[in-house]
Write a protein that binds this DNA or RNA. Structure first.
Ligand SMILES: Nc1nc2c(ncn2[C@H]2C[C@H](O)[C@@H](COP(=O)(O)OP(=O)(O)OP(=O)(O)O)O2)c(=O)[nH]1
Ligand SMILES: [Mg+2]
Ligand SMILES: [Mg+2]
Length: 609
DNA sequence: ACGGAAG
DNA sequence: CGGCCTTCCGT
């Protein structure tokens, strides 16, 4: 990020988020911090780059929600110079080690600052020493217990177990803990919530809600789970443990009448909750995890013991709703909002206007259009993949092994590819020998968009394909213009059906390559090229933001597993979650069509047989 | 009772 | 010019 024209939205987002982190430490008023956080959030959800917006535009940065003259000016500076004086000053004044210190559970910005000012602690090591020597306990606001808890949490703070889990891994743990909690006789209903329920790409911790009249028994049961390593905290209504893979699991126990509200609350997101609660307030209602109440409640009813719904119900008659999520949203004048959409972006407005889409679901999927076999880097043969697809009740699949550029996978040259297509022809023939075939197998290929432009197989081969996925595996660190033009070239190729995993990112492992997604989407719309939502839990691109933008531009999405084994076909559900987070309906997805319908919406010059 | 951290 | 409402812990 040193040249002006290389400053991306992601860079600006990172700078603003970093400024917010630093401000948190240096005192700073919460509103200012919030302003930076919210600006970062907004910018990260825009697909048009601020750089190009500045060039073209009648619009200015101040038109962007949450950005006023000050932040607008800072964006200008960032775009011009690639750096921000404020950031440099803050970095200079905040010791780098404090962020490690704030990762110790129980230590936030205030306490970290005190430790720094009173004991000059700016690293985990010096913090550990100070605790050992008993110096921490002498500070006002700290004591023996705090000191001991810091020591207890030292190993965790030092470890690198802070990474968020892939949704798939979180789901494994979630299924275990849900099944276990359901065994408790005191638990009437058990549901997973939080980012897991919203289908986020990654999950920081697991959250669950239990309906019960007997929280003590439920919490004892939770403590006795064999996945529980430590009980982190435990009160009357909530409890947290550390579970498998050092993952924190938060449990909230509520009564029957509060269950809907509690599930809504614990599902979040935080931003969605804040908007929903503000909206309740505008209607002269109060929303919390116990119910929807008439009037403003918070201040007067903060006697904790009285927070049971029964009491409020009886003595005030103010309780309006809370048993189911649907009741809760209805009480606030809204239809129920699917959990995947609850990110505090535009879902509340959509709901208000009755414009919520009917989201795509797994059972809508009729075909899978990206997968590999043993011909390249797959683990199963063509026949095995087809058999597995039949068992999954798919109506059609495309076999899309790698083209020859991917030497590591023994990518196919024209000869081997035509050979495979011959096999597919024979397979289709034998499948349709006794009438309507159980499945149709499309002759496909995953071609590579080469470093120098062009594809790794010639048009006279591709024109014989039923389905062509074009992906970019090499030269991923080229500059934005290069990458973008390679992709644009493929989009305009009449034989290319879809762009595979269009950003190349691997979650928690590898950044997306730098690409002008707005232009890619506009071009895909123009040429009728589809864009993929890759269902591999490491990829999941296009992501929710990009996929939503593509849909708005009129691009059809294809959700594909990119399976490298028969088991890989099961990953479709992850792609569906991502599509739902993008607010997509079945009609936005090409592979929810029957094969004949799919043919009618494909771009003209790709022949499909 | 309060501040801080957290959900 | 300032977004919501709550629980738990330690002092
Ligand atoms: N009203 C309100 N609800 C909150 C707040 N913070 C968290 N929540 C709710 C919404 C969250 O989705 C839910 C669970 O909190 P988590 O910290 O576990 O966040 P979440 O699961 O969304 O993301 P994660 O992947 O765990 O980081 O609690 C808050 O400040 N106000
Ligand atoms: Mg969570
Ligand atoms: Mg949580």
């Amino acid at each position: 990020m040193n040249k002006a024209n290389t400053v991306t939205n992601a860079d600006i987002t990172a700078v603003f988020d970093r400024v917010a982190d630093l401000l948190e430490f240096t005192e700073a008023n919460p509103f200012r911090i919030r302003a930076y956080r919210s600006a970062a959030r907004t910018i990260s959800s825009m697909i048009e780059s601020l750089a190009s917006l500045r060039e073209n535009s009648t619009r200015t940065f101040t038109d962007i929600e949450g950005i006023g003259t000050d932040l607008s000016h800072k964006i200008e500076v960032l775009l011009e110079t690639g750096s921000l004086p404020l950031l440099e000053e803050l970095e200079a004044s905040v010791p780098p080690g404090v962020f490690a210190i704030m990762r110790v559970p129980g230590l936030g910005p205030k306490k970290a600052k005190i430790l720094f000012e009173k004991l000059h602690i700016e690293s985990l090591e010096s913090l550990e020493n100070a605790c050992r020597e008993g110096r921490v306990a002498t500070i006002r606001g700290f004591g023996e217990k705090t000191q001991q808890s810091i020591l207890d949490n030292m190993a965790f703070a030092k470890s690198d177990q802070h990474q968020r889990l892939l949704w798939e891994d979180a789901d494994g743990i979630m299924q275990d803990v849900l099944a276990y909690m359901k065994q408790s006789f005191a638990a009437r209903t058990v549901e997973g919530a939080g980012s897991w329920r919203r289908g986020c790409e990654t999950v920081g911790d697991l959250d669950l809600v239990v309906e019960s009249d007997d929280p003590t028994t439920v919490m004892n049961h939770f403590a006795e789970w064999n996945g529980t390593t430590v009980v982190l905290l435990r009160g009357d209504t909530k409890m947290s443990i550390r579970g498998p893979r050092e993952t924190q699991i938060d449990l909230r126990v509520v009564t029957h009448d509060s269950f809907g509200c509690a599930l809504q609350y614990f599902t979040g997101s935080k931003e969605h909750n804040v908007l929903l609660r503000s909206r309740a307030r505008e209607h002269n209602l109060t929303l919390n995890e116990y119910g929807v109440f008439d009037g403003f409640q918070a201040s007067e009813t903060s006697v904790p013991e009285k927070m049971s719904v029964n009491v409020i119900h009886a003595e005030k008659g103010k309780w309006i709703a809370g048993r189911t999520e649907e009741d809760v949203y209805k009480a606030i004048g809204l239809p129920w909002i699917p959990s995947e959409m609850r990110e505090g972006r535009s879902e509340i407005t959509l709901a208000e206007e009755g414009r919520l889409p009917r989201l795509v679901q797994l059972s809508d999927v009729r075909g899978d259009l990206h997968m590999h076999t043993t011909a390249t880097d797959g683990e199963n043969t063509l026949e095995e993949m087809v058999q597995a697809a039949i068992e999954r009740k798919l109506e059609y699949i495309a076999i899309t092994d790698h083209g020859q550029r991917v030497t590591m996978a023994r990518g196919l040259n024209a000869k081997r590819l035509l050979n495979q297509w011959g096999e597919i022809d024979r397979l289709n023939d034998s499948l349709s020998k006794h009438g309507k075939p159980a499945i149709v197998v499309l002759k496909g290929i995953e071609v590579d968009m080469l470093e120098k432009g062009g594809l790794d197989l010639p048009d006279n081969v591709l024109e014989q394909a039923d389905w062509v996925v074009a992906s970019l595996h090499y030269g991923q660190s080229q500059p934005r213009e290069k990458i973008t033009s390679r992709i644009l070239e493929a989009i305009s190729n009449p034989h290319v059906s879809v762009i595979g995993h269009p950003t190349g990112r691997l979650i928690n492992r590898r950044q997306a390559y730098d690409v002008d997604m707005l232009t890619v989407i506009q071009s895909a719309a123009k040429y009728g090229t589809f864009l993929e939502i890759n269902a591999n839990p490491w990829r999941l691109d296009l992501n929710d933001i990009h996929a939503a933008a593509a849909q708005k531009a009129g691009v059809k999405l294809v959700i594909s597993t990119d399976a490298h084994s028969t088991q890989g076909l099961r990953q479709m559900r992850h792609g569906i979650l991502q599509a739902r987070r993008a607010s997509l309906a079945s009609q936005d997805i090409a592979n929810t069509r029957s094969l004949s319908e799919l043919r009618t919406i494909m771009k003209k010059r790709t022949r499909i047989q």
